[in-house]
Simulated scan of single mutants.
Amino acid sequence: MSSPDTTPALAAEQDCGISLTIEQHDHVVELDLAVPGIQGPPGPPGPGGGGYHTHVQTTPALVWTIPHPLGRRPAAVAVEDLDGFEIDALVERPTEHLVIIMLGAATAGRAHLS
C-alpha cells in the first residue's frame, strides 16, 4: 500500500543484493538486502565438542581439583552432594583439562562437567 506521499524505489545491485528506499514526508528509510551468491568452499572442521565427565568426590573437601579428559573448558559444571542435592559453588576452569570447585564447607559429592 502506498499513499501519495510514499515513493518506494527498488534497484538490483549486480546480483549481490537489493536496495530499498522509502521516502515519506521528511523521513527516508533505506534497506539493503543480501541475496545469496555462489557458495564458497567449506571451512575447516570445528573443535571437538560434546561429551561429559562426572567426578565423584568421596572425601569431603573445601576445594575439589578435577582433571578431566574433555580437552576443552566445560561450558557447564553442576555440583551436587552425595544425596543428589545441588550445591552452590565457585567454579574455575584454568585450563582445557582442569576444573577447580570451591565450596563453603567441606563436602563430598559429584561434579558433572559438560
Rank of each mutant, 00 (worst) to 15 (best):
Glu92Ala: 12
Val77Asn: 06
Pro74Lys: 01
Val35Thr: 15
Gly51Lys: 00
Pro47Gln: 10
Glu23His: 05
Ala78Asn: 06
Pro94Tyr: 03
Leu62Tyr: 09
Leu113Ala: 03
Arg93Ala: 15
Glu96Trp: 04
Glu30Lys: 10
Pro45Thr: 11
Ser114His: 01
Cys16Pro: 01
Leu31Asn: 06
Ala108Ile: 07
Val29Gln: 13
Arg73Tyr: 05
Gln39Leu: 14
Arg73Met: 09
Arg110Thr: 11
Val63Asp: 08
Thr54Ile: 15
Leu70Ser: 01
Leu103Asn: 03
Ser2Tyr: 11
Ala76Thr: 10
Ala89Asn: 00
Trp64Thr: 02
Gly104Asp: 14
Pro45Phe: 01
Gly50His: 02
Val63Trp: 05
Ala61Phe: 07
Thr58Ser: 12
His25Cys: 09
Ile66Pro: 04
Pro4Glu: 11
Trp64Ile: 04
Thr54Gln: 09
Thr58Gln: 10
Leu82Val: 10
Pro8Arg: 00
Ala76Ile: 12
Thr95Ser: 10
Cys16Trp: 00
Tyr52Met: 05
Ala108Lys: 09
Glu86Ile: 13
Ser114Tyr: 03
Glu86Thr: 14
Gln39Lys: 10
Ile66Lys: 01
Leu31Val: 15
Val77Tyr: 07
Thr6Val: 14
Gly48Cys: 05
Ile87Asn: 03
Glu23Asp: 13
Ala12Ser: 15
Ala9Phe: 13
Pro36Ala: 10
Ala89Asp: 09
Ser3Arg: 10
Leu62His: 06
Thr65Trp: 05
Pro41Gln: 14
Val79Ser: 06
Ile38Ala: 10
Leu31His: 07
Leu90Gly: 07
Ala9Asp: 14
Asp26Thr: 13
Ala61Pro: 04
Trp64Phe: 07
Leu62Gln: 08
Gly71Ala: 06
Ala9Met: 11
Val28Asn: 08
Ala105Ile: 14
Gly43Arg: 12
Glu96Met: 04
Pro8His: 02
Val35Phe: 08
Pro8Asn: 04
Ala12Lys: 00
His27Pro: 02
His55Glu: 06
Val63Gly: 05
Val77Gly: 05
Val91Met: 07
Leu70Phe: 04
Pro42Ser: 13
Leu103Trp: 04
Glu30Thr: 14
Leu70Arg: 01
Ala89Arg: 00
Val29Leu: 12
Asp81Gly: 08
Val77Cys: 10
Gly104Tyr: 03
Pro74Trp: 02
Leu70Met: 06
Val79Trp: 03
Gly51Glu: 01
Gln14Lys: 07
Pro44Cys: 12
